[in-house]
Design a protein around this nucleic acid. Sequence first.
DNA 1: CAACAATATTGAAACGTTTCAATTCATCGT
DNA 2: ACGATGAATTGAAACGTTTCAATATTGTTG
Lengths: 335, 335
Amino acid sequence: MAKVSMREVADRAGVSVGTVSHVVNGSSRVAASTARKVNEAIDELGFVRNAAARQLRSGHSSSLGLVVLDTSNPFFASVAHGARQACDEAGLSLLIGDSGTDEVRESKYVDLFAEQRVNGLLVTPTGSDLSQLESVAGRGTPVMLVDRASRGYALSSVTVDNVAGGRMALDHILAGGCTRPAFIGGPQSLPQVADRLLGARGRAEESGLELPVFGTEELTILAGRNAGEKVVALPDGERPDAVFCANDLLAVGFMQAVLMFSDLRIPDDIAIVGYDDIDYAFSTIVPLTSVRQPAELLGRTAVETLLQENASVSHEHHDREFTPELVVRGSTRPI
Amino acid sequence: MAKVSMREVADRAGVSVGTVSHVVNGSSRVAASTARKVNEAIDELGFVRNAAARQLRSGHSSSLGLVVLDTSNPFFASVAHGARQACDEAGLSLLIGDSGTDEVRESKYVDLFAEQRVNGLLVTPTGSDLSQLESVAGRGTPVMLVDRASRGYALSSVTVDNVAGGRMALDHILAGGCTRPAFIGGPQSLPQVADRLLGARGRAEESGLELPVFGTEELTILAGRNAGEKVVALPDGERPDAVFCANDLLAVGFMQAVLMFSDLRIPDDIAIVGYDDIDYAFSTIVPLTSVRQPAELLGRTAVETLLQENASVSHEHHDREFTPELVVRGSTRPI
DNA sequence: CAACAATATTGAAACGTTTCAATTCATCGT
DNA sequence: ACGATGAATTGAAACGTTTCAATATTGTTG
């Protein structure tokens, strides 16, 4: 119950501390009879190895830190899941910190993990200033940006091409014959949002169209519903005939507003495209067309790339970018 | 970049290691000028405190471990959120492990956290055998069961009364005038599911009614949809006029099946009650009546109770039980 | 200005493991 | 029976902090 160290185990089993260590770590050549004696002593005394001492001596931590924006967003839940799997396979444990888009908390977790001497740190940063991360990386903790490009900072990153995704969404909307598209989303300080808009607007302008923006404060269902209420209240001539939402939560909320507060039909009167393709997108009453991001793969690749970079001698930074994929469902006209 | 310890900082600042420690830990009385010198040295050298050494010496870890069934289930996401907040307030960090209802992985995380000497361990166990947890608790790591009663084991617990919740659901269904209720859910090896059924069935029998069960393998949207397809295919006389689903994900899937594969109206032809009241329940096209569990409060209380027990001398076990609350929405007839 | 109190700083001993060179022990070939 | 060989075990030195008694430095007061 109290303090049981290898010392006590060794005494009880009548061997030296070194031998106990060997037994506990399985590996080394220890006589079967000795191993048995030691294991009995361990059970009898209820010995639990002290990870702090182990790590202090060995210098390793065998864990990775992940700091995400928001665990309750299904997209990040998937990223975490993929990262977890990759860690399992590498025999590492994954410690998760949830910043809740709070820069202070994010910073706290980054420091905590650095002190913990994690083998690496995966971060989706909230703000635009990445200098803390750069400095942490400089002090010996490898950092990998997740879902955020390294633009100008000496950091590695794994991202999905948001500009291409935005373009895809608009491409599909225009191919369906819509002529008055709009963008729903915000805040534009999030690069994810800004880039999706950039790609979408670029494509719209190629067809000689404007792309009006209905801004939101957050990327939540409620924000989407509020935006939807405004849109459906517009007179027929001014109302968009298609909206591209910066993420699926917005799209779900928007759809609710359309169904609750108007007689507009989806997709005939108004088409809706979301982003992320979260599991719930498939579960809305009018199944949602969405730009799918390979969320689990993103998490998995972030871990794997980080481990690779750790293993290699050269300390280059890599920027890995995935391409999103359009998933067409009932909320838009097919082709 | 390489190893920078307090030794190097001390040399650089021209003070002793002890003084550096005092500066780093803020607290003690150190002359302002000395503190400045030390801090400069820290910045110049990029010193990062070694948590392992700190913990080894002090014996404390200032962190809590949480092992949940499934991070991607919004209910558990909320539990984790509540726990995180309570930890923040207590100045602890929360490490999350996701067992994915895999007993082996659960056991791995429990061991990992025990070796880490966490101040406490919050676990929602997958299986029925809690002896590993009891033994870990006996070896000095306080354990708190979350959303799982301690029945027979010498462990503390924080739960929500599932029997009462089940009864509530049926009560509401019967008050709405339904006469052929059914239960959707499984596996019954999960105490959460079994207890909800128990409460519901008890209430049904008081009104002289049967409560047929449509079993599911998992508590997911897809499983709910499959169950729903079976139910709507039944002939008019045999089909339930109300279903109580073991959780909201099932209810959402069930609702989809009703809307996609039948002309039945909700709630007039078939009423639906879910469980958990996750955020998405409010977001389904027919807003879902659900038995709300105070998920965040559950997580918060688990942490707070654990810390209280740690602080007290007596090592009693506490079982704290909350009562759920019915939230009536459009998927059932009001009163 | 001496004596004392209050405040700053130092030094060194843990904390519990891993690791590796050194030592002991058993086995085998000749 | 005797080294030689290899396997099993031991001992002790780190790892980098915290902590606390001891010491040094200042400031205050009669």
